[in-house]
Design a protein around this nucleic acid. Structure first.
Lengths: 179, 179
DNA sequence: CTTGGTGCAAACATTTTGCAGCACA
DNA sequence: TGTGCTGCAAAATGTTTGCACCAAG
């Protein structure tokens, strides 16, 4: 459709935080390099490994995800894309999301049963969250202790941790202090 | 550490494990009593507190949930009920599930984006789980350390924990030992 | 008796899919 | 230049709702 973007897009990629236990990528790079590599080339590599194509639309979708700072719903993405003049169809958005999930670049985080929330995880630390059951307020945080506990649990069972999802259901105090 | 069952329908209710921070029940009983009370009377009390009725259908649904050992999908429940000759409509099943969620008796756990999974939690310890990203195998467990960590996180922020959901995404070893 | 509950079917919202033409490698 | 990709619209899925009749308290 319009403006071709080779592969600039790469905001705040964090240091290695994800053990890639899946067979998603060709094992030709060090984990270091992989974690710091721009997401679009990670995605491109994933696609190539499956003989799939890196199309304009797929690049646009990934771009929109990054612009959202990693947390989004399918519908939001669709609107964002439309607003930017990148007209990608709903079907393609969903198809691309599926690929990004397979690639381990994003995860699905379901809060309300309504629609899926997705989140960029590749190269980022896992985000844990706490939801107030009265007000619905959500706080996100990263807890290294939790990640360590997760790894310990896995190790004891001989599994290898890839990621996790932690949600606390709680009640915020009446005054509801902002964190 | 379990079942003192004073009334009918009530399989393996565990000791108090849930702080009820919501305004679901009338505060006339001690937490102890509440936690050990049979689920149906818990539910009945909840309904009464909202001027709702304890109908045959609602009792049947709760029964079917208990019979499933607490983990179920809406559709499964519907089939179970039908098999037992308790013909409850789909609409009523969903409506009852909503009530049980509000009452804090069950929670929604979404694994695949497809349908909701629900789980009995009232009076039970939170179940954490680990999913293998290759084979899809799921292991459930209870980790007190995690619950303690959860409570600590809440306390530091002045919140009160009500429950949590913890899922680990991992890769099981090639030999995939059974736990 | 009064209020809320139920079943049914239609409505809804989200996600998936079949197909004909288009574009990347 | 040939696969694979896209958009469209229709289908599929899971859940909710409006309505007329029914039942719990």
């Amino acid at each position: 459709m319009n403006d071709p973007k080779p592969e600039p897009t790469n905001p705040r990629i964090a240091p290695p935080a994800r053990v890639d236990g899946t067979d998603a990528f060709e094992p030709t790079e060090s984990p270091q390099l992989r974690a710091f590599a721009p997401l679009c080339s990670v995605f491109r590599r994933f696609l190539k490994s499956r003989d799939l194509k890196y199309t304009q639309e797929r690049a646009d979708v990934l771009d929109a995800i990054i612009a959202r700072d990693g947390s989004f719903e399918a519908e939001e993405l669709l609107l964002d894309l439309r607003a930017r003049g990148h007209d990608v169809s709903k079907a393609t958005v969903y198809r691309t999301i599926r690929l990004l999930l397979d690639a381990g670049i994003i995860t699905q985080s379901l809060f309300d049963a309504k629609q899926s929330h997705y989140e960029l995880i590749y190269g980022r630390e896992p985000r844990d969250c706490m939801v107030c059951m009265k007000t619905g307020r959500r706080i996100e945080f990263t807890n290294r202790e939790l990640t360590a506990l997760r790894d310990r649990i896995c190790r004891e069972l001989g599994w290898q941790a890839v990621g996790h999802r932690f949600q606390i259901f709680a009640v915020s105090p009446p005054d509801d202090p902002v964190v």
